[in-house]
């Protein structure tokens, strides 16, 4: 292959694959959530008539994994800036949008792999998807979520020079994105204000799409899940490309 987008993508995959401690470290949190919440809240959730909580929770935790992995992936730009490698890509005759596209696709692929690993872990713990034939659709939704949030992370990182600043901002937006997405609780009986906030969160559609493909439970519908994420992703990729094109070293 001879494409700059591909080689940017490949670089991220290689870097990911070579940092085993990072892979393992980033799986600790989802595992903890699955076990602690899944088994801890399980009995109450069932008593309240919500059904099996692990079935409900697993897609949410997969979404959380994908969200944090893709969002934090933006830090690689700052990393590259600090270690000087960014200059190497910026002096090259490759259009900026291709560089950023390669990065976003690379970050999204890594996040999706993380999501698949958490899916496997949850299967081991006892999560049972309705149909294994729907798993490709679930992976597709993981990828859509990843593209969008890798785009968001990359856009933020294009404007920042230091890692602390990036981590601060991303942590700040991570919590509300995660908690107000329906990852942890059903959206059916929310107070109306909360309901509206949740509907503004792109992750909500990702979680819904994931849950629909894995457990056939949904509050929205597949088509709107897909289109909201798809359109948001396209917009954010453009924003990222624009912001990155203004980068100086």
């Amino acid at each position: 292959m001879n494409s700059p987008v591909y080689i940017m993508w490949l670089r991220q995959i290689k870097r990911y694959w070579r940092s085993k401690p990072r892979i393992i470290g980033s799986l600790a949190q989802p595992l903890l959530f699955l076990v602690a919440l899944g088994f801890g809240f399980g009995p109450i959730f069932e008593k309240a008539g919500g059904g099996n909580y692990l079935e409900f929770l697993a897609p949410g935790i997969i979404a959380m994994t994908v969200l944090s992995s893709s969002l934090f992936n933006g830090i690689e730009i700052i990393w590259d800036r600090q270690f000087g490698f960014l200059k190497e890509t910026l002096v090259s005759p490759v259009p900026r949008y291709k560089i950023i596209l390669g990065r976003i696709l690379g970050g999204a692929t890594v996040a999706t792999i993380q999501g698949i690993i958490v899916l496997l872990i949850s299967l081991i713990i006892g999560f049972k998807p309705t149909s294994i034939f729907m798993i490709p659709l679930a992976i597709f939704f993981m990828f859509l979520i990843s593209i969008f949030f890798a785009g968001v992370g990359t856009s933020i990182a294009s404007k920042l020079e230091d890692m602390q600043g990036f981590q601060l901002i991303v942590n700040f937006i991570f919590m509300p994105l995660f908690f107000l997405s329906g990852a942890l609780f059903p959206l059916s009986d929310l107070p109306s204000l909360l309901n509206q906030v949740v509907k503004l969160n792109p992750l909500t559609y990702g979680v819904d799409g994931l849950r629909l493909s894995l457990t056939n439970i949904s509050h929205l519908n597949l088509i709107s899940d897909f289109f909201v994420l798809f359109i948001c992703s396209i917009i954010v990729v453009f924003i990222g490309a624009y912001l990155f094109s203004k980068t100086e070293v």
């Binding site: 700059p4 080689i7 670089r11 290689k14 190497e88 890509t89 090259s92 005759p93």
Partner: peptide, 25 residues
């Protein structure tokens, strides 16, 4: 050749060269 470092240290020497060559088509 920059004054300060500009290699990807997580890649091999060959991969750094290849990356560059692909960017330059």
């Amino acid at each position: 050749v920059f004054q300060d470092e500009s290699l990807d240290e997580e890649l091999t020497a060959y991969e750094n060269m290849e990356f560059h060559a692909v960017l330059y088509g």
